[in-house]
Design a binder for these strands. Sequence first.
DNA 1: CCTCCACAGGAAGCGCAGGAGT
DNA 2: ACTCCTGCGCTTCCTGTGGAGG
Length: 399
Amino acid sequence: MMDKLFEQEIQKQSVFLDSNKISPHYIPNELPYREKELKSIIQILAPALSGKKPGNLFIYGKTGLGKTAISRQVVEKLLEYAKKYNSKIDSVYTNCHIHNTQYRVLINSLNKKGFKDLTGYASSHLYEKLLSYVDSDGKTLIIILDEIDKVKDINELIYLLTRSNDELEKGHVSLIGISNNVMFKEKLDPRSKSTLCEKEMVFAPYNAKQIQEILNQRVKIGFKENSVSDSAINLVAALAASENGDIRYSLNLLLKGGELADNAGDNQVTDEHINTARKIVEEDIVLSLIDTLPEYQQLVLFTIAKLAELGENNKNLLGETIDTWISGEVYKHYTELSKQFGKETRSARWFREYLKDLEMTGLITTTMSGAGQRGTTQLIKLAFPADKILNVMKKQYDL
DNA sequence: CCTCCACAGGAAGCGCAGGAGT
DNA sequence: ACTCCTGCGCTTCCTGTGGAGG
């Protein structure tokens, strides 16, 4: 019985040749339309080959534009060359979304370099360990900090890591910081800012045509021939273009679309699959955004979503749907709802901080009021359809 | 023009948790 | 085990801002 099920699964036809190659985590050998960026990073890091300290680099750009892929690729190539020419270069990659403090970044870096059982040590001790690791043979250590904006004590971390260059007898430490948060740079200490942003680079979005080309390449290696209709690829490219040229998003669409086709037993991915995939992927995005939110922010979001739901049957005098509220109004409803759920009500001041946080996650958008409204107040609007948010929240918390 | 309203957001301070030092 | 310190989440208080309304 079980054997039969496995047999069936194996023999099931698939549109995929190798679904791993469609995964956003897969780094292809060639990254089209990034030659310029590739060249600049190589130029910045190249001094390491002759034992000089490469400049620190800050890379900024929206999600899914190849920041991580390019940096990792360049560093990998650099290590190959270093071997060939006998230069001592080493690198360590840390995703700060997971390792989001100075301490955790240090632990992670040392772990990856083969140091074990480090928990319990003070961070000064970890720092010493890292220093001696670099100093032992005078290597150049390139530290890649992805999603660097997620580190809580980022100023201290930057200071610590760059200060190490003064204390090292031989060898250097060089930083590559990657972020998709525009505001991040402005929140840095002026001192950290000038160190980290010694060299700076901005990744521009791909346009629809470039996305199409990139997707075609991936489809060729990830899908069987003719398993994705041309119009489906066009649709994915168009959708991604409207999402700031986010390749990761488009790959997720293709991956989901392929799975949907497989499940339905279809031998080609069509527009229909992509449209369904889009709904699923979007819901996943909303879910993951909401999921990481603290409880009290979720309640605020829920309040706004509830208002939006009501607002759909609530037209203003011009017959337009009401989809924007002033913060005082939302706060009133929030206090009512929190009583209803038996939660403590936060002060209006802190409520405003919640709004700011929600805006940071991109779940809501706010604008300052102008004429037609007394004084200055925030006008609050959901960034996603209310039913989508409510659906996700209902599933999660059976509200 | 002046006052009032409705809010924004800074500053101070408070209780608490979790480390570091002793 | 104990104090001390620090950061965090939050409240309270306060000043500032700009349109509405007299």
